[in-house]
């Protein structure tokens, strides 16, 4: 694939560095269905990359492989130079707790927990004490302009508020990579835009890289560059660079 070249965009960490997360030649099939057929992908620290492509092209599968949720049938994923598939399941889980954050399309908040507790959950899973975790969670809710829903359960807040809570939850542990799979899929365009603004702003502030799976172009426009997945292969359009 085409090597990375700096975009026109402002101060990004130097591109001469090795990528933060890199996948080469990923293959993954579900039964007879090939979901990935030799996909390559790279992302550097602090970069926001949109993953686009038609439905069923393998975007989500790529994201799951990158995050170490799914083991690819072939190919490798390197995170900070370490190969993910060489790690045990427990180590990969630990990595996801400490270094990765996730935002999905819907149904991701624990319905019994309050929004505040939901945001605090990954922090607590990583071993932070409850008091500290909830304080940080409150700060993040504030930052995503949903401090008022802290005490409510997910069932009692709107979709847009819930999605912001989910973004707060993904960012609260200060991950190095945020994986977002159709984060605005269930939102109207105004709410979707606001959520994207808050997500990208917060990611830039904390220096987190974002892998943004979407088929909405206007959401992809929040990225620094895009990768198109077609038939299980990822391409970085040369003209965009």
């Amino acid at each position: 694939m085409t090597p990375m070249t700096p975009t026109a965009h402002s101060a990004r960490p130097g591109r001469s560095e090795a990528p933060l997360l890199a996948a080469t030649g990923l293959h993954k099939s579900y039964g007879a269905t090939p979901a990935l057929a030799g996909a390559d992908f790279q992302i550097h620290g602090g970069e926001i990359v949109a993953v686009m492509g038609p439905s069923g092209s393998g975007k989500s599968t790529l994201l799951h492989c990158l995050a170490g949720i799914v083991s690819p049938d072939g190919g490798t994923v390197h995170y900070q130079g370490r190969e993910l598939s060489a790690l045990s399941d427990a180590r990969r889980s630990a990595l996801r707790r400490s270094d990765f954050g996730f935002v999905f399309q819907f149904g991701q908040l624990v319905p019994e927990l309050t929004c505040l507790e939901n945001v605090a959950l990954p922090l607590r899973l990583a071993g932070t004490r409850r008091r500290d975790a909830e304080q940080r969670a409150a700060e993040w809710l504030e930052r995503l302009e949903v401090a008022d829903v802290a005490g409510k359960r997910p069932g009692e807040v709107s979709g847009g508020q819930g999605q912001r809570v989910a973004i707060a939850r993904a960012l609260a542990p200060r991950p190095r990579v945020v994986f977002a799979d159709e984060p605005t899929g269930a939102l109207d365009s105004l709410n979707g835009e606001r959520a994207m603004q808050l997500l990208t702003a917060a990611a830039r502030d904390t220096g987190a890289a974002v892998v943004l799976v979407t088929h909405e172009v206007r959401v992809a426009a929040y990225s620094d560059r895009e990768v198109v997945v077609r038939d299980g292969r990822a391409t970085t359009p040369a003209a965009a660079l």
Partner: peptide, 16 residues
């Protein structure tokens, strides 16, 4: 199409 797409996205990014 790909080239046009990238061009469009570049503009969209700027507008965004």
């Amino acid at each position: 199409l790909d080239t046009q797409r990238s061009e469009h996205l570049r503009l969209m990014r700027e507008l965004t």
